[in-house]
């Protein structure tokens, strides 16, 4: 077990600085000590745990109820799965409904169960790019469908860059909400 830092408060370990050149006071007169509190940084530089009587007394408890509180405070190693019931959630979050092979393409959720649509802003707001990631399957049909959907609502042509290997489509402009609405319709 690692050395405990329950040192008795009354006995602070102190270093008495000795400056060469200064004469030591003659014995009998107590010097004014500038107390420097010592803190140990590493295992090798810290003193070893000696006789338990030098340290304050403690009791070891293994109460499962108290340990529950400890577990509550620790981080979980896994992202908890959400409820996948297809109902209305107050925040506007929708669970993924579509199965992988419902459409010629498929867009799974990110590890946080969110839709993989992002907005990147460059050049101090002059350039905005909407990115749709994690696309599986026929990316070209998806691209044409999205292009039609967005251009119809926006009434102007849009620049698109598709990368089949990555499964990524980039739209020139801020169409994040439109893309997410399209995905909600499909159930992605």
């Amino acid at each position: 077990m690692a050395a405990l830092r329950l040192f008795a408060r009354t006995r602070l370990s102190t270093l008495v600085p000795y400056y060469p050149g200064e004469d030591r006071l003659p014995s009998g007169i107590s010097p004014v000590i500038d107390q420097i509190q010592k803190r140990w940084g590493t295992y090798t530089s810290s003193p070893k745990y000696t006789d338990p009587s030098e340290y304050t007394d403690y009791e070891v408890t293994k109460d499962p109820k108290e340990w529950e509180y400890v577990e509550r405070v620790l981080k979980s190693k896994v992202i908890p799965a959400p409820c996948l019931e297809n109902k209305e959630y107050p925040s506007g979050w929708k669970p993924p409904v579509a199965k992988p092979h419902d459409y010629p393409y498929y867009i799974p959720r990110t590890k946080n169960y969110m839709q993989p649509v992002y907005l990147e802003i460059f050049h101090r707001g002059l350039r905005r790019v909407t990115i749709v990631r994690k696309i599986h399957g026929d990316i070209w049909t998806l691209e044409s469908e999205l292009k039609e959907y967005i251009e119809k609502r926006v009434n102007r042509p849009i620049g698109i860059r598709t990368n089949e290997l990555l499964g990524e489509i980039k739209f020139r402009g801020d169409y994040v909400n439109l893309v997410k609405a399209w995905m909600d319709e499909r159930g992605f």
Binding site: V78, A81, P96, K99, P100, H101, Y106, P108, R109, H136, G137
Partner: peptide, 9 residues
Amino acid sequence: YEDENYFYQ
């Protein structure tokens, strides 16, 4: 796996 329902591959 936890995400086996979401496998496309």
